[in-house]
Design a binder for these strands. Structure first.
Lengths: 103, 103
DNA sequence: CGGGATCCACCGCGATACTG
DNA sequence: CAGTATCGCGGTGGATCCCG
């Protein structure tokens, strides 16, 4: 019998969403990151998606948003401890991809 | 500048699809697995989806299908070397999920 | 600058039924 | 037993415009 609620599935829900893992990875490399920085780092992710994914990640307590209420506005994203604990996993996924993903 | 083609994204394409990672995990624990075994192990995954995902994984050379042309038919799924190399990663995802995924 | 709101196209996925 | 075929809908994500 399979375990009733699957940690794998739950975890995937968090880092899935098409861009979340990449966002976490980029933030881990360059944090703190501004919104516009992330746009440049992940050009294939639309502005809308980036905003949505960041919101999801924030609600999942994986990243933290710091808003500076200046004009023009400025925000910075950093990883939480939970988010940091995810980095090695994403790192190994990255390594695996380099090895086994051809082209 | 972001790397042009992202290994993370590529890898996620492989193990994504909602059930693939769970399928790999279950096969790694019980291989060789029959189709009906996997159905019982992952009851939330519909028969149709299971078939589709297994086909994807086979085409990605992550699993191998062995068909016994008997009556009634019998198939067994096993991991390839590539598939096995994925197991530790999925394992750590599982561990992470146990820790940080509440209820 | 850093988003949110709205509209819409696509396709992932379930339900059901059929086949070798 | 181990799949495939067809239908249909709901969610995901892109394009565009707006707003503090």
């Amino acid at each position: 019998m399979a375990e009733k609620d699957c940690p794998i599935e739950n975890t995937f829900k968090l880092i899935n969403g098409k861009w979340k893992s990449v966002i976490i990875y980029q933030i881990s490399k360059y944090e703190p990151c501004r919104f516009s920085e992330l746009q440049k780092l992940i050009p294939d992710c639309s502005k809308r998606m980036l905003a949505l994914q960041l919101k999801d990640l924030e609600e999942a307590s994986i990243i933290q948003k710091h808003v500076y209420s200046t004009v023009p506005p400025k925000t910075e994203y950093t990883l939480t401890e939970v988010g940091k604990s995810l980095v090695p996993i994403i790192g190994s996924i990255n390594q695996w991809g380099k090895k086994y993903t051809k082209k």
